[in-house]
């Protein structure tokens, strides 16, 4: 554990090498926008590092050189208008430099035109309901059985022995790769939030309100997330699994579910 702690401190600066097993940085994800989000995150992070080095650097030099024990004599100055103007205006410039690329990303996030598939996601205490709006497929998705058994208090089952403990569902959401998927969120009871880090989507599901988000997955695979808004006692037990598959596999999946709606 200590080894990991030290490694992870080093690691944030070498974030590129993060492995899935003990990730400590935001995932780059599988969409263009999740990658942009990651880059914005790293850009602001590096600005913080730079400002931190500057401020902490000056402070540390001062702590070493301007010690009474080292025989320092206190100066008497108590203000400098020039310095104050500089350190008020430079941050404003930096903030504007951060805002511009961020606003560009935000514009792209808004652009939900030409969706291929619309999926209505309704949150329940404590499961998700997915409805493929135009395909006539709908089903509930809740915590898979092995996790369900192990999550009980003092269940005696080692969570490490359960594959994808708390992150596995009975019926995953299946979507085709490279298609534009438009998600519509609402809730049946309290406020929930649907979050899949690899899609960089976190959106509140609110009763009486419909919310929208979209993604176009560039990679196929299985991607996991969780409810992110406190929604009662089983808030920690309503995971999300999204399976991104090739178009033909998706067609086959839809067909098999259309006849056999759950």
């Amino acid at each position: 554990m200590i080894r990991n702690a030290i490694l992870s401190l080093l690691g944030l600066s070498l974030a590129e090498t993060a492995t899935a097993d003990w990730a400590f940085n935001m995932p780059k994800g599988i969409t263009d926008l999740s990658l942009e989000t990651y880059r914005l995150h790293m850009m602001v992070f590096w600005w913080c590092v730079a400002i931190g080095i500057l401020v902490f650097g000056v402070m540390i030099i001062s702590l070493i050189r301007h010690r009474k024990a080292a025989g320092a004599e206190a100066a008497t100055f108590s203000h400098s208008t020039t310095a104050e103007i500089i350190w008020t205006s430079i941050p404003v410039v930096i903030l504007i430099m951060i805002t511009i690329p961020t606003a560009e990303t935000m514009v792209r996030l808004e652009d939900s035109r030409n969706p291929d598939i619309s999926i209505v996601i309704t949150a329940y205490q404590w499961k998700w309901h997915y409805k493929y709006q135009d395909e006539g497929v709908e089903f509930y998705s809740s915590l898979a059985h092995p996790s369900l058994a192990a999550r009980r208090k003092q269940s005696g089952i080692d969570p490490f022995s359960v594959e994808n403990y708390l992150l596995e569902v009975d019926h995953p959401l299946v979507v085709p790769r490279d298609a534009k998927i438009r998600l519509l969120f609402t809730s049946n009871d309290v406020v929930h939030a649907w979050w899949v880090p690899d899609l960089a989507i976190k959106k509140d599901a609110i009763p009486g309100i419909v919310n929208e988000a979209w993604f176009r997955a560039k990679k196929s695979g299985t991607f996991r997330g969780q409810c992110a808004e406190l929604c009662g006692k089983d808030h920690g037990y309503m995971p999300i699994v999204v399976e991104v598959v090739e178009a033909d596999a998706y067609e086959a999946w839809i067909d098999s579910h259309r006849t056999n709606t759950e």
Partner: peptide
């Protein structure tokens, strides 16, 4: 910045 400037060239203990 003002706190840091207060420390700068002080005689800290």
């Amino acid at each position: 910045f003002n706190w840091v400037a207060t420390m700068w060239r002080g005689a800290m203990s």
